[in-house]
C-alpha cells in the first residue's frame, strides 16, 4: 500500500466546558487520502468537520493523534495545505488579481511576478476581465472562484474546501461543481471537501467519509465507483442513486440513534 498523501491517525479533540465536564468534539478519527484523490466528508452539523480542517491546517492542536502530510508529521504546523472556507474571505481593499496572488506573495514572490503568473489562470477559469475589479463588485459565484483560485495558486498539494458552495443558489452551485471538477483535473491536487449536501459529495468525490456527531467520528468510508469525466446525467443513474441513498440511510440511522440516546 503506498503512503497516503495525507493521513489523520487517531485524532481526538476534547474541550473542557465551563462546568468542568469534558466535551468530545472528535473521537479517534482516522482518514487517509491518496495523492490526487477527491475525498468528501459528510455529516450532520456539529460533527466537527470544521474542527478537522482546522487541525489539518495546523490552526488547532488536537488533544491526541496527529496529521501526516507527505509522510511527514505536520501536526500543529501551518502552511502545509491550502484552506478555503465557506466565507470567501477576499480582502476588500485588494483587487481580484491581488487577492489571488496572496498565497504567492506570502511565499515571497514579487508582486509583479505573481501577477504575471496568476493572470492566465484568471482568464482560463472564468474571471477574465475582472482582474482589476474589487470583490464587492463580484457575484457570490465569482467570489468563490476567486477564493478557490487563490487557494490553488498557493500551490500546496493538498486543498481543504469547507462547504465552499454552501451559500450559493442551486444553479450557480451546480455550475461551480463542474468548474471545480475541471480545475481539480487540471491541477491534479489532493482535495478534501466538506459538505452536508450528500448529492454534491457523491457527484464530486472518489471516496466519501460519512460522519456522525457527538462525538464526531467516521462511521463509514465509501468509495464512489463512477467513472470520470462525470456528466450531469450520472446523477440520475442507478449507482449514483444507490450511493446517495446509502449515505442518507447511514446519516439518518445515526441521527436517530443519537436522538434516542
Amino acid at each position: 500500500m503506498p503512503t497516503p498523501k495525507i493521513e489523520l491517525s487517531g485524532v481526538s479533540q476534547e474541550f473542557e466546558k465551563p462546568d468542568g465536564t469534558v466535551f468530545h468534539a472528535l473521537d479517534n478519527l482516522t482518514i487517509r487520502v491518496d495523492a490526487g484523490r477527491f475525498a468528501s466528508l459528510i455529516g450532520p452539523s456539529g460533527c466537527g468537520k470544521s474542527t478537522i480542517f482546522n487541525i489539518i491546517a495546523g490552526l488547532q492542536q488536537p488533544s491526541r493523534g496527529g496529521v501526516i502530510i507527505n509522510g511527514r508529521d505536520a501536526t500543529g504546523m501551518v502552511g502545509g495545505v491550502g484552506y478555503m472556507l465557506q466565507k470567501d474571505l477576499l480582502f476588500p481593499w485588494r483587487t481580484v488579481l491581488d487577492n489571488i496572488v496572496l498565497g504567492l506573495e506570502v511565499r515571497g514572490v514579487s508582486n509583479q511576478e505573481a501577477r504575471a503568473y496568476a493572470l492566465p489562470f484568471l482568464h482560463k477559469y472564468g474571471l477574465g476581465g475582472f482582474e482589476h475589479a474589487y470583490p464587492s463588485a463580484l457575484s457570490g459565484g465569482m467570489r468563490q472562484r476567486a477564493a478557490l483560485l487563490r487557494t490553488l495558486l498557493y500551490d500546496s498539494e493538498v486543498i481543504l474546501l469547507d462547504e465552499p458552495f454552501g451559500a450559493l443558489d442551486a444553479q450557480t452551485r451546480s455550475r461551480m461543481q463542474e468548474w471545480l471538477l475541471q480545475i481539480w483535473q487540471d491541477f491534479g491536487k489532493t482535495v478534501i471537501f466538506v459538505t452536508h449536501d450528500v448529492e454534491e459529495a457523491v457527484y464530486l468525490s472518489d471516496e466519501i467519509y460519512v460522519m456522525a456527531a457527538r462525538p464526531g467520528r467516521v462511521i463509514a468510508h465509501l468509495p464512489v465507483p463512477i467513472e470520470r469525466p462525470r456528466p450531469r446525467e450520472i446523477t440520475l443513474g442507478r449507482t449514483f442513486m444507490r450511493l446517495k441513498e446509502d449515505c442518507l440511510n447511514l446519516l439518518n440511522s445515526f441521527e436517530q440513534h443519537a436522538e434516542a440516546a
Binding site: L59, V78, G80, Y83, L85, L89, F91, G103, V106
Partner: peptide
C-alpha cells in the same frame, strides 16, 4: 476579522 488572520496563517 479573525478569519482573515487565520487565512493568512494557514497560507504560512
Amino acid at each position: 476579522d479573525r478569519d482573515l488572520e487565520r487565512l493568512m496563517y494557514s497560507l504560512g
